[in-house]
Design a protein around this nucleic acid. Structure first.
Lengths: 148, 148
DNA sequence: AATAAAAGTTAGGTATATATAACTTTTATT
DNA sequence: AATAAAAGTTATATATACCTAACTTTTATT
């Protein structure tokens, strides 16, 4: 149906930000989107129109901004990827939290669903630390400081 | 010195491709770069001029294309990231090889050096499968098929 | 050496995504 | 209700990176 219409990274970022704003303040306001994306107010309108044309956001000039069903589905998937990737970077790879978040923000567009699914399984596997009765992540941390 | 001049993903891709061509055929030819990047011949010149201005490639019209010291250093780092990320996706997460390669190609721009360094350590840690005397990756594969 | 083919370049055009500044609509204040 | 402030929009401009088609230079073939 709409399987081939791959969205740009920027479009995905807008959807994700709108989802987060929708969750915290019911509707997304143009000004808030601009702030979150670190973009000028004037640049928002054009993208909202584009996303509206693609039936991903409900947009009327001067009106409320919400995600459509279709837009929300995509936004949730992007957000899910973000959370999983950040978790891996932060908890497993020991990347500093803010940095983990920033990198996840970029990686979420590079990884597809099935790859992130595997990453999720992998984290679950680690959390169960099979084959050992000690904490697996702690072992990795120790492993890191042992070297050099 | 040149710490803040962050390159675009496209620029990084050009450098990486030129490095690979340089390694296999001594110099990179415009036509080959175009083929590797899946871009038309006519689009190459402009980027080469830009990279030349930034002292990353040695470029003369109709001449050979090679990386400068500075360009090669960057290209090697990008390539290193690519190899490490692909290895993780393919060997650890069990992502199909071609796909792992394609995704690594995009992730390499999202991850910075120190994060990839941690990923490398992590893979080394896995390969030593501490805490167990069995093959760690195999355990993960089994873990995946156990579920559902 | 002449000429055909291949490789590389140039110019003009497109798409995406941004900024700025002036303008309009909405909301809040008095 | 009048008006000021805030939010949103529009128009114009910029930067990146690409395409196509015509052109030039280099290389290979006869």
């Amino acid at each position: 149906m709409d399987g081939k219409n791959k969205l740009s990274e920027n479009s995905e970022d807008y959807l994700e930000v709108i989802l987060n704003l929708q969750n915290t303040q019911k509707v997304a306001r143009s000004k808030e989107i601009a702030k979150k994306l670190n973009i000028q107010r004037g640049s928002i309108t054009g993208m909202l129109k584009k996303l509206s044309r693609k039936k991903l956001v409900n947009y009327e000039p001067y009106g409320f901004i919400t995600l459509t069903k279709k837009g929300e589905k995509i936004a949730r998937e992007i957000k899910r990827r973000h959370i999983i990737i950040k978790d891996f970077l932060f908890r497993v790879l020991q990347v500093e939290e803010k940095k983990a978040d920033a990198i996840a923000c970029r990686m979420e567009h590079a990884m597809d669903k099935s790859t992130v699914d595997m990453l999720l399984k992998f984290i679950a596997f680690i959390d169960k630390h099979p084959g050992t009765d000690s904490n697996w992540i702690q072992e990795f941390i120790d492993f890191c400081s042992d070297k050099e």
